[in-house]
Structures are given as structure tokens and as C-alpha cells.
């Protein structure tokens, strides 16, 4: 197939308004239009299924009908660029942010970002997290200059919405109920062993981890965290980072 033929075929596949490419024949002599319509439908249904399986909490929030319609529009505008469906939908959150019918649900894009981070963590390389005992053996004067290596599965998300609570309620991790205390929540996602974990960050925690993950010294990361939240608890945050396997090494 020439590149021109392929391009025309793909364009017609993505947009039902475009005429079926000339020269198509059906094996049983029936109209190629109908066979092509089946193909078109399979493409959309298959990709909608891929998106839905990556973002189940988002689907629960808006319902199946709304989600499918939103996904179909996404698929039309952002067809896959890679045969690997596991990364398809990485830009779904940005699309939903600009998708007018979903504007009322201001927290939806962040829920989708959290689910995308979970998928990324799921497929990230298996690496054993940092053994805390190695830190205990360090002389105290080295601590301030420590630089940590983040786990390949680590993501940190900051949200102006109660992101982790909303996600947990719609992912079946917590009971559904009205949220009395509508506050900002930051999240950390990592997969230290076999299971993807989502944690709600304590005050300053996201800034602290973000600084460390971007290669800042421990002392600098602590300064950033305290600037961000005066209630920052270094001990609790270090314990949390070590327990959730946020890092794999230090130097």
C-alpha cells in the first residue's frame, strides 16, 4: 500500500463524514461501505474500551454514556500514535480540561491525571526500593547533601481539589459520601513492589518529594517544604517516602 493510500484509508477510518476510499472491495461482493462501517465501529469501540479500562474512576464519576461520548471525541481528535495502548490516553486529562460538556466537573481532569499516573506506575520497571537501613549507617554530617534517585514508578500530583478522597470513593477504595471538608489534596503514586499505591500527602509533602525527585539536596528540599507549609513534618515525610518506596538509591 502506498503512503498516500494508507493516509486516505486512515483518514476515512477516523471520520465517518469522509467517503470510503476508492478501490475497496468486499470478499463476498457486498457493498464495501457496510464492511468499512463495521471496521470504523470496531476501531472506536476498541479504543473506547482501552480508555475506559485506564480511567475507571473517571468513568464512574461521569457515567458510562457520558464517558463513551467523551472518549469517542478524544479518539477522533487524538488517534493513537503508537501501537502500545498502555500509554494511549496520556493526554486525555488535557483534552478533558478543554472539553466543554465536562467543564462543570472541575476535578475530573485531576482524577484522570491520577489514574494515568497509576497506569504509568503499573507498567514502570520493577526496581527494589531503597533499603532504609543504608540511611541509618550514614554519618550525620552527610545528610544535608544527600541526593535521592526517584523510583521509576513515582509520580507526585498537586491538586486544588480533594483529589485523593474523590479518587478513592470512585475507585471502590473508600465509601461514597459527601465531602464536608473540601480542601486541596496532593497525591503520591508509586509501585515499590507488586501493587500500585496512592497516598495523600501531608502538608508540604508534595513539594518536598518533588524537590528530591528533581535532584535537589535533602537540606534544600526541606527548605522548600517549610516555605510551602510551615507545618511540614520532616520525620513523618521521610518515613512516608521510605515506606512507600519513593526512592531507590542516594548519593
Amino acid at each position: 500500500m502506498s503512503l498516500c493510500t494508507q493516509t486516505r484509508f486512515a483518514a476515512a477510518l477516523a471520520d465517518p463524514a469522509v467517503a470510503v476510499p476508492p478501490g475497496l472491495t468486499a470478499w463476498n461482493g457486498l457493498q464495501p461501505q457496510r464492511r468499512f462501517a463495521v471496521y470504523r465501529n470496531n476501531v472506536v469501540v476498541g479504543l473506547t474500551g482501552a480508555i475506559a479500562s485506564r480511567f475507571p474512576a473517571a468513568q464512574t464519576i461521569v457515567g458510562e454514556a457520558f464517558f463513551s461520548a467523551m472518549a469517542a471525541e478524544f479518539i477522533r481528535v487524538h488517534p493513537p500514535r503508537s501501537p502500545l495502548l498502555l500509554s494511549y490516553g496520556d493526554d486525555f486529562a488535557d483534552f478533558v480540561e478543554r472539553f466543554e460538556p465536562a467543564n462543570d466537573i472541575a476535578y475530573l481532569p485531576d482524577v484522570i491525571r491520577l489514574e494515568a499516573a497509576r497506569g504509568k506506575a503499573y507498567h514502570a520497571a520493577d526496581v527494589a526500593p531503597l533499603d532504609a537501613a543504608k540511611l541509618a549507617a550514614l554519618p550525620p554530617e552527610r545528610l544535608a547533601d544527600l541526593v535521592f534517585v526517584p523510583h521509576p514508578s513515582l509520580s507526585i500530583l498537586r491538586s486544588p481539589h480533594p483529589l485523593v478522597t474523590i479518587w478513592a470513593m470512585n475507585a471502590g477504595e473508600a465509601e461514597l459520601r459527601s465531602i464536608e471538608d473540601w480542601t486541596a489534596e496532593d497525591a503520591m503514586v508509586a509501585r515499590p513492589h507488586m501493587t500500585v499505591e496512592v497516598r495523600r500527602m501531608p502538608p508540604g509533602g508534595a513539594v518536598f518529594l518533588q524537590a528530591l525527585a528533581s535532584g535537589e539536596r535533602l537540606a534544600t528540599a526541606v527548605e522548600h517544604a517549610i516555605e510551602n507549609a510551615s507545618a511540614f513534618d520532616l520525620s513523618a515525610n521521610l518515613a512516608g517516602a521510605l515506606q512507600t518506596g519513593a526512592f531507590i538509591a542516594f548519593h
Partner: peptide, 10 residues
């Protein structure tokens, strides 16, 4: 301060 925090974290 760092050493103390690390010790209690561990």
C-alpha cells in the same frame, strides 16, 4: 535536626 528527624523516621 536532619539527623534527629531521620532517626525518628527510621
Amino acid at each position: 535536626a536532619l539527623a534527629g528527624s531521620l532517626a525518628s523516621a527510621l
